[in-house]
Design a protein around this nucleic acid. Structure first.
Length: 571
RNA sequence: CGGGGCGUGGCGCAGCUUGGUAGCGCGUCUGGUUUGGGACCAGAAAGUCGCAGGUUCGAAUCCUGUCGCCCCGACCA
């Protein structure tokens, strides 16, 4: 491709709408342009990167036994009513109506379609397992689209669905996908981690996320340096303390006057009670029932853990009026002592003694409270968010925390959709059984952004070779000098003949402009043809990710480039 | 949806407080001189000041409404 003909409008200045580096660089380097919030056009360079990512994904899906198909983006309301999600999915689903006023969704995901499809045409265990996937645009009317490609309302996703005869089969499919995903991110040379995740409302008991590590990541990952435990915050377990308190140290509970003091911080400042010696009490409404949760003053409640524990459909913080009605005090003076509600205590309370908490009477607190004596919880379980420094639940060494971008997520669905849509088969014994499903997603467009987020410097993008839009850019220092253009064109043609993807920057620009653009768009290998080296019949070869320039005799350029590319493909 | 900010040539911004006929840098086009890390000179094109009302002799500027965009919170690939 000749740069003079390539559509890549680069920007010298950072568009004001872009906050994070991948968004800024993709915009500046002429990869993407915004159409409306969360909706982007992919320009030619981006399209090439996407195609490379897609092809890697496709190859690994096929290798794992997947079969590619393509399902509709427009999905009829009736299908979503069968699964119950037409009413449940909420505002995140784009809905539209045809001329007969029939409802449709722009597909946010494809469980309904694929399950109906498989239901209609698969009847026998002989046809299973089945792994079907597609790579296609997805539509989700996100509350807040953000960070360019990171969280779009229209985005490209690979989604694969597995159908098995039993849970052992699902385990096999799941493992295949797990290792296929590792192969995919390995091949793209991305620095990532596989992390245990919560499978959430979807059900199923196992779920993993694939996180590309980057500071701008929205998800916090806790991982262990000593073993391979890694989990996202929602999922990360907190280890039970091994030294419970001893009853002999318990002091007598006393009520103290704390006028106007409502927050944990108030008690720290005014009463000198450290956060770690306080217990906070949160009131939740779980499917209409008000319950209390107690945890150490400086900890965050993990609502997902609570929700999973209670098996509640709906969980939200209780409003102050109904709390006052039940407890006789407002927020800020709540405590577990004497409370006539179910109390769920965080595990950590087992090693807290003589702590302080609200007295369920405005302007009063208790001190020297002890669990077991002064109140008895319904259950003592892990309910808080894990933090850096917590003990690894597997090997007990200290956990580290890091930010990651979720680029892949796999989970076991079980029979949620096959039950709802009636997707069953006849097994070898002639019995009708529900198919056991799994689903496996990769955010293709998000992966492109994540790759930039992880591979850039002050001058621009540094594409990993396996997903670079072009491998090589050739820059004749002065396009008007015929001998330079001739030498550059000769190499250009030689490389192209070998299937190497190359840009010839034939523009009549000053060298500096061409160098800047080449760096900005992140082409991994740059070949400069200038008067100095040309005299010696040499070309200058520079890797985007290294500082040094290598002088290579003209007849060795092809081999040198081939060697760099093949090394870069495996790194 | 709650909170904060912003809409002025393609991009980045100034002008708004104190109404008076729209300006700067970059980019673009033409000509010339240049040519190893975003050149220089000369000339040119390009703006319904987001939109709709209102106040006023007069509105980018003041008022009201509305739309859009960005950032912070609960979701997710």
């Amino acid at each position: 491709m000749k740069a003079s003909q390539l559509f890549y409008p680069t920007l010298r200045e950072v568009p004001s709408e872009a906050e994070i580096v991948s968004h800024q660089l993709l915009l500046r380097a002429g990869f993407i342009r915004k159409t409306t919030a969360g909706v982007y056009s992919y320009l030619p360079l981006a399209k090439r990167v996407l195609r490379k990512i897609e092809n890697i994904v496709r190859e690994e899906m096929d290798r794992a036994g997947g079969q590619e198909l393509m399902m509709p983006i427009i999905q009829p309301q009736e299908l979503w009513e069968i699964s119950g999600r037409w009413s449940v999915y909420g505002d995140e689903m784009f809905r539209l109506y045809d001329r007969h006023n029939r409802g449709f969704a722009l597909g946010p995901t494809h469980e309904e379609i694929i399950t109906a499809l498989v239901d209609a045409d698969v009847q026998s265990y002989r046809d299973l397992p089945l792994l079907l996937y597609q790579i296609q645009n997805k539509y989700r009317d996100e509350i807040r689209p953000r960070f360019g490609l990171m969280r779009g309302r229209e985005f490209i996703m690979k989604d694969l669905y597995s159908f098995d005869v039993d849970y052992e089969g699902l385990d096999v499919s799941y493992k295949k996908m797990h290792s296929a995903y590792q192969a995919i991110y390995d091949r793209m040379n991305l620095n990532y981690r596989v992390v245990e995740a919560d499978s959430g409302a979807i059900g199923g008991n196992e779920s993993h996320e694939f996180m590309v590590l980057a500071d701008s990541g929205e998800c916090t990952v806790l991982y262990c340096k000593s073993c391979d435990y890694a989990a996202n915050v929602e999922k990360a377990q907190c280890k039970a303390p091994d030294e419970p308190t001893s009853v002999s140290d318990w002091r007598e509970m006393e009520k103290i006057s704390t006028p106007g003091l409502r927050t944990i911080q108030d008690l720290v400042t005014n009463m000198g009670i450290p956060e770690q010696e306080q217990v906070k009490t949160l009131m939740y409404s779980a499917d209409e029932e008000i319950i209390a949760v107690v945890l150490r003053g400086d900890r965050e409640l993990n609502e997902i853990k609570l929700k999973n524990l209670l098996g509640a459909e709906q969980l939200f913080m209780a409003d102050e009026a109904s709390v006052r009605e039940r407890c006789g005090a407002g927020f800020g003076s709540l405590g577990p002592v004497g409370l006539k509600l179910k109390i769920y205590a965080d595990l950590e309370l087992t090693r807290m003694q003589n702590f302080s908490c609200g007295a369920n009477e405005d302007n009063f607190h208790f001190r020297n409270v002890n669990m077991g004596r002064d109140f008895v919880p319904e259950a003592v379980v892990d309910l808080r968010n894990a933090v850096e420094g917590d003990l690894c639940p597997v090997c007990s060494s200290s956990l580290q925390s890091i930010c990651g971008i979720e680029v892949g997520h796999i989970f076991k669905l079980g029979t949620k959709y096959s039950d709802a849509m009636g997707a069953s088969f006849i097994n070898a014994n002639g019995e009708e059984k529900a198919m056991i499903m799994g689903c496996y997603g990769i955010g293709v467009s998000r992966t492109m952004a994540a790759a930039v987020e992880q591979n850039n410097d002050a001058n621009g993008i540094i594409w990993p070779i396996p997903i670079a839009p072009y491998h090589v850019i050739i820059i004749p220092v002065n396009a008007k000098k015929e001998e330079q253009m001739q030498a550059a064109t000769a190499i250009y043609e030689e490389l192209m003949a070998e299937g190497i993807e190359v840009i010839l920057d034939d523009r009549d620009e000053r060298a500096g402009v061409k160098f800047k653009d080449a760096d900005l768009i992140g082409i991994p290998i740059k070949i400069t043809i200038g008067p100095k080296s040309l005299q010696e019949n040499q070309a200058e070869v520079k890797k985007r990710w290294e500082g040094d320039t290598e002088l290579v005799p003209m007849d060795q350029v092809l081999n040198t480039i081939k060697a760099i590319i093949s090394a870069g493909m495996k790194k």
